[in-house]
Amino acid sequence: MIVFVRFNSSHGFPVEVDSDTSIFQLKEVVAKRQGVPADQLRVIFAGKELRNDWTVQNCDLDQQSIVHIVQRPWRKGQEMNATGGDDPRNAAGGCEREPQSLTRVDLSSSVLPGDSVGLAVILHTDSRKDSPPAGSPAGRSIYNSFYVYCKGPCQRVQPGKLRVQCSTCRQATLTLTQGPSCWDDVLIPNRMSGECQSPHCPGTSAEFFFKCGAHPTSDKETSVALHLIATNSRNITCITCTDVRSPVLVFQCNSRHVICLDCFHLYCVTRLNDRQFVHDPQLGYSLPCVAGCPNSLIKELHHFRILGEEQYNRYQQYGAEECVLQMGGVLCPRPGCGAGLLPEPDQRKVTCEGGNGLGCGFAFCRECKEAYHEGECSAVFEASGTTTQAYRVDERAAEQARWEAASKETIKKTTKPCPRCHVPVEKNGGCMHMKCPQPQCRLEWCWNCGCEWNRVCMGDHWFDV
């Protein structure tokens, strides 16, 4: 396979590697080409510095992935760790964990309700045991953590790749202090920090972006993250068709209702045909949960890209028209025109101005929308079919299609509260000796007794199943 190397943020060049090629071997190839010592090179990928003893497969490097290699003399205490030698983080029983690669970060837990604080980093599902597709590297999971809308060759929703760059020099040479644990960490600028490894760059702020994971991409090709779309790892039924499908869209209502993408497309087109989208002054033209839940309008309007190009163009047109109407304007009634106009409040005669090729020149009556006339309008008909009709959803289907309910059931079956801080902690095999993952707590306690870890627990039921 081919990976592209950008040395000291210059133009990239291809390097041929195998899945079992080590990072140090990659350094040696680059060092020979650039005429520099291999031990002064640092390989940066997806916000993480890659260790010498890791392989291309370990690092989730795919065909035509772009890695950054910078030349920086080692500072005291760094060289041993980078070589894969006596790194205290690798000691058996050590409590410190390697910062998780962005290629394996899962933010789907952050669609849980606000009262489930902490689960994004504490609760991990076991539903990723799908067998890898044919042709994928051994052991590589097909679980997708992110979804994007690819405006490039795909023109559809695709699995996405999370990447990070330095907000100062805009190069992907920043190593994160810690990985993101929720969508806010990724979507809110300057929320996460790190250290830029580019020479002479003092940058410390992280800037995240997404790429389409279905095809090789260049540095400049980015895609918009659709953070309401998630892999259906909890096997929730769709609120409309009641099938279990994946991926799904999880509405931001209190129940976190789930809808499959085909039904979401149908829901949007139906509402669009009836012009029953909601115009929100802050958000724009949007839709609420299909069950009509309060405070559930979709905030990231790129989710409506699921409509496809033709329907999305209609959505944008109707949204612009609705904006004009909300501002007190009118639409030209001549067939084939429909231009938005903003006449004076007491102006009865409205002319669709033909300047700049935008208007048709038609003069019409503001009251009856017919060709302009003197005197009273002959008839004014009330528009028919403008009443909002509820999208029919079966109550039982709505009850079963809740992301929140599956989460709470998982928590109930696989977790116990920490005796000190009461945060839910998952036990997935292993011994009875637990350690609270909350940095402010870190209590060592017994899963069996529910009390602080002691010699009695150690001698009596340390390794009970």
Rank of each mutant, 00 (worst) to 15 (best):
E399R: 14
G359H: 14
L228V: 01
Q326P: 03
C169D: 00
P343C: 09
S131V: 12
D20V: 04
T387V: 12
E98R: 09
R348P: 05
F381G: 05
C241Q: 01
D126K: 10
W462T: 03
C95R: 13
W462K: 00
R33C: 04
D18L: 08
D394W: 04
R275Y: 01
Q57N: 09
H11M: 04
P439K: 05
V186Y: 01
P99T: 12
P247A: 04
H302R: 08
G359S: 10
L226K: 00
V248T: 03
Q171H: 07
T21Q: 09
R402F: 04
S22F: 04
D62S: 13
D280S: 10
G135S: 11
G359E: 09
A405L: 12
K299A: 07
T351A: 07
P14R: 05
R271I: 03
S10P: 07
P14W: 03
G385F: 08
R156K: 12
N254C: 07
E322Q: 07
N52T: 03
E96R: 08
I122F: 13
C365M: 02
V3H: 03
Q400A: 14
T242G: 15
S193Q: 12
P189F: 04
D53F: 03
S22C: 09
N81W: 14
K299D: 08
I2D: 12
E322M: 04
Q165M: 13
E395P: 14
E395Q: 13
P159A: 08
K416P: 04
P439C: 05
G429C: 14
P288D: 06
V157W: 12
L266R: 04
N81L: 15
A405S: 14
A206H: 01
A383K: 13
P113E: 13
S145P: 05
I142P: 12
C352N: 02
H303Q: 02
D184G: 06
D60C: 09
G359R: 13
P199E: 10
P247M: 05
V250N: 02
T103N: 13
V330H: 05
V29P: 00
P294N: 07
Q63T: 11
S9A: 04
A390F: 06
F364T: 03
V15E: 00
G194W: 02
G429T: 15
F264I: 01
H124T: 11
R128N: 13
E221R: 07
P133F: 11
Q158W: 03
M80C: 10
S110T: 11
Q389E: 13
